[in-house]
Design a protein around this nucleic acid. Structure first.
Lengths: 340, 340
DNA sequence: GCATAAAATGGAAGCGCTTTCATTCTTCGA
DNA sequence: TCGAAGAATGAAAGCGCTTCCATTTTATGC
């Protein structure tokens, strides 16, 4: 079992077509099509006969042909930076669950935080005529935007908030997250405030919100390091080392993700700092490990999965002709543990 | 910008077709097709003219039509249990990178460790006529196997090892992993040996290998808990609690994943056990957090990404008519840290 | 300058399905 | 028993591309 012809002939792939089923069942192709797509339009007796033939032959409809003819592919595409980061993975899971329940399939694109790649992916994806597309973030290349709006399909931008989405957006204000964390830390009172973070647009927004809120209180220190997204444990550790080397009083740090915050935390501990008296750290994302770091990490929680769920619903609703609000907000909250 | 017609008319989606381009460029459709797919068959002058028209009109080829006609979709599907577990996410990333480089797209299916869902996904996926398909594991429903072999496309089963793959497999022996861990723990000498794990086929294989190797030395204890995959931190903690409650001497535990091992470790620490004198723990997967647990987790490392990479290569090679060895083995090794 | 091979191009058919729109069966009230 | 309305079914066309083959153009050698 399982010998695979190497591309040679005898490759009858799916020899059985809808026409074959029709012939075997003694009906016309249209009827078979209806039996599959709109069974209630077919007389029970006929339906049963057709289903029997389908089962017997192992017929698998060709959705390429179907999609070409009907202009509906039941395919929804999503472009995310990465999937090995829990943050996007869970959104994908939520998205997928919702889509599958409605008979849609997920076409995945990974952009690696690269807008040029996002553009190429968009082109490749649009070529498959998905019924809808989901993008991460609200900053895209001009060409990407043009291509997308020209394609005339439902679009959802996730993970961020904007008054002017391409079509629809599901997310929250990263600026507000930064401000909230600043507020939180401010209430506890530290001598120094710093931010450690990556350079993707959303992380930058969080930093800006943080900096902005602290503007009148203290300058926010930034480590002198180039940190590309996704930032790593090592990044966090190095950044913290730098901050600590500068000396000064008690330090409050906002990390652009739990990963980087965990690195920072580890460095602080390694240097014997007392947490959170000498050094306080707040992360972002509430990753799985956050409750289990030493000490447990205070962080910002977002319902990641819900982002995917809502994105799917937006698309699905649009496809069924319902109106959808252009901006769906997702909540966030600080989860207080021991690191701050 | 961005108003989305609600399914109404005026939905000319992609108004421009290959025929339009042909007309505008003053050539026949065939020539445009060649300009896109096999540019070297077209005279430079003509090519340039066509490309200009394409750029000007923003033409995006319809791959549904293309795939239908050519019987090649440049689509590769992958079914994995989940994507929010790093373990599969990284394989997906590796897979995707390799595919994209060759102009292929990834169609993703999430089975949630459910074979019935795997079957449904397989059917839905096959309907899109992918050029190849990747499945997780080597145990599938009879119907799934039948459908797959009948479809006549390259198949790769990943994450496990087998002498009789459906077509090709990329992975390693989970049984051997279990045996290796047993060996490792045995060398250190403990009074009791236990395994904590999930119930997916691969986790079970790891347990069996572990149990088998220890057979002549000591009975391997198992907690009395139902643990569905993916097993959780909480599962690990509870399981360890149970094992510790039973009393007895020093204990060596093999967890079916780093997550569950981390939970176990945490419980042991919470009870004041000395690690690794009183309790030793070995995980599986070498997840990102493994070096950062307290104490750092000893575990089994696999090149997860490479599994994806090799899977993609297998498919790609098959598609280009090259021969591919039916079983590609991926190495694994114990990463010794402080927990064992 | 001409025959010949090679390079470019085009015509026709068809991939496997769905969409009108038309036709044939049923059902049911009068 | 008949006719009308509704339920089932079917015929034909076409979705947008590629394939196969034939035809035209260009380059090459003598």
């Amino acid at each position: 079992m399982g010998e695979q012809d190497k591309k040679g002939r005898s490759d009858q792939s799916s020899p059985v077509t809808l026409a074959d089923i029709a012939k075997l069942a003694g009906v016309s192709p249209v009827t078979v099509s209806r039996a599959i797509n709109t069974p209630k339009l077919v007389k029970p007796r006929t339906l049963e006969a057709i289903e029997r033939v389908i089962a017997r032959t192992g017929y698998v409809p060709n959705l390429l042909a179907g999609g070409l003819a009907s202009r509906r592919t039941r395919l929804v595409a999503a472009i995310v930076p990465s999937v090995s980061s829990t943050i996007f993975a869970e959104a994908i899971e939520g998205l997928n669950a919702e889509l599958v329940a409605e008979g849609y399939q997920l076409l995945l694109g990974l952009s690696g935080y690269d807008q040029q790649r996002e553009l190429e992916l968009t082109r490749a994806i649009l070529a498959r005529r998905p019924d809808g597309i989901i993008l991460t973030g609200i900053t895209h290349l001009k060409e990407t935007r043009a291509m997308l709006t020209g394609a005339g399909l439902p679009i959802v931008e996730i993970w961020d908030q904007t008054p002017s989405p391409l079509d629809t957006a599901v997310g929250f204000s990263h600026f507000d997250v930064g401000a909230l964390v600043a507020e939180f830390l401010l209430a506890k009172g530290y001598d120094r405030y710093a931010q450690i973070g990556a350079n993707d647009p959303r992380a930058v927004q969080r930093r800006d919100g943080f900096v902005n809120r602290l503007m009148d209180v203290a300058p926010v220190e930034l480590p002198d390091l180039e940190m590309n997204s996704p930032s790593t444990f090592r990044d966090g550790r190095q950044a913290m080392a730098q901050l600590l080397d500068r000396g000064g009083g008690s330090l409050a740090v906002f990390g652009s993700s739990d990963v980087v915050a965990h690195g920072a935390l580890t460095e602080a501990i390694a240097r014997g700092c007392r947490i959170p008296e000498d050094v306080a750290i707040v992360g972002f994302g509430d990753f799985d490990f956050a409750p289990h770091t030493h000490p447990p990490l205070t962080t910002v929680r977002i319902d990641r999965r819900m982002i995917g769920t809502q994105a799917a619903r937006s698309i699905l609703r649009k496809l069924s002709g319902e109106a959808v609000e252009p901006m769906i907000k997702i909540g966030f909250e600080i989860v207080k543990r021991s690191s701050a």
